[in-house]
């Protein structure tokens, strides 16, 4: 049986001051990144993880930033969720991202946890991946080969998850930042979720993004969480909406296609049956709200 007892395993904890130091430390076998620790410490306590070395990345200046440059919002890996949700640029341009962050844990958790950590924990039910999916976010990964400085590469957030609790990150690699293109005019995004209580992991969550051209859906993106081994896009719905004129129950019809794109299971939080039943409802609500935010009428 599991137990959140006192942590009795010995491990080393490095607190590097520079990114490169951190990356070098992480190249050693058994090293793990410690950021807010809101997932990792629990996992250590219940013996799900037995690290020999933790490398603490909060406080590293190269990772601790939220900025807008080159037409993108860039959030460093050490930026706290509470800093992101209160950042003026984020609040004004990405209300749906704020909504998704705001339901993660309580204030205390958001004062410790990071956006990058929410991604790296790779929970199928995490609240930020669906909205990052539909906002076309990219994840910048960095590592060092030793003495060569930090190497970096970028990939779409959709390619980041490889399974439940699994990502593309290899030993020595960490997330450097998450970047999101600033949304164009006539676009809107929304986030919806259901949970057992307000302070909870989602039973199911969903995000929608719409780019509007007059009364027509120019482009729609939809993603859901807790309905498959990883957060997923809903391409069937997206195709059904592309170029379609708003009205006549368009969103409802399209949302009902969600069954094609999800494969939910029974777990401690809910049932596959229920998730299937309410997925289309959440998608419809998210689409409706995204449309409204894009300036669409109806």
């Amino acid at each position: 049986m599991s137990s959140t007892r006192v942590i009795s395993v010995d491990f080393e904890c490095r607190i590097p001051r520079k990114l490169e130091e951190a990356l070098e430390a992480l190249n050693e076998e058994g090293s793990q990144v410690l950021a807010g620790g809101t997932d990792l410490l629990n996992n250590i306590k219940i013996n799900a993880v037995k690290p020999s070395r933790l490398v603490y990345v909060l406080g590293i200046p190269e990772l601790e930033f939220i900025s807008v440059e080159g037409g993108r919002l860039i959030v460093g890996a050490a930026a706290l969720l509470s800093d992101i949700e209160h950042n003026r640029q984020v609040v004004s341009r990405f209300p749906a991202l704020v909504e998704a962050i705001n339901v993660i844990g309580g204030t205390q958790i958001r004062n410790m946890a990071t956006l990058a950590g929410n991604l790296c924990n790779a929970s199928p039910g995490a609240d930020t991946p669906p909205i990052l999916f539909v906002l076309d976010a990219e994840v910048e990964i960095c590592w060092t080969n030793g003495g060569t400085g930090a190497q970096r590469s970028r990939l779409p957030v959709g390619g980041f998850f490889t399974g439940p609790k699994k990502t593309v990150l290899k030993q020595g690699q960490i997330v450097h930042s998450v970047s999101i293109p600033l949304p164009p005019e006539h676009s809107g995004a929304a986030f919806r979720r259901l949970a057992r209580v307000s302070l909870d992991i989602a039973k199911i969550n969903c995000a929608a993004y719409i780019e509007r051209d007059g009364d027509t859906v120019h482009e729609a993106r939809i993603a859901l969480g807790s309905v498959a081994p990883t957060p997923v896009r809903a391409p069937t719905i997206e195709k059904a909406l592309d170029g379609r004129r708003y009205g006549g129950g368009l969103f409802q019809e399209a949302a009902e296609l969600v069954e094609e794109d999800i494969a939910p299971i029974d777990d401690v939080r809910s049932t596959a049956e229920y998730r299937r039943q309410i997925a289309s409802l959440l998608v419809r609500e998210a689409l409706q709200e995204a449309w409204r935010r894009s300036g669409g009428k109806g």
Partner: peptide, 15 residues
């Protein structure tokens, strides 16, 4: 719930 409070849910003030 494996004994974890994460999955023993109780109503909170907001609920």
């Amino acid at each position: 719930n494996r004994g974890l409070l994460t999955d023993y849910k109780m109503l909170g003030a907001v609920d």
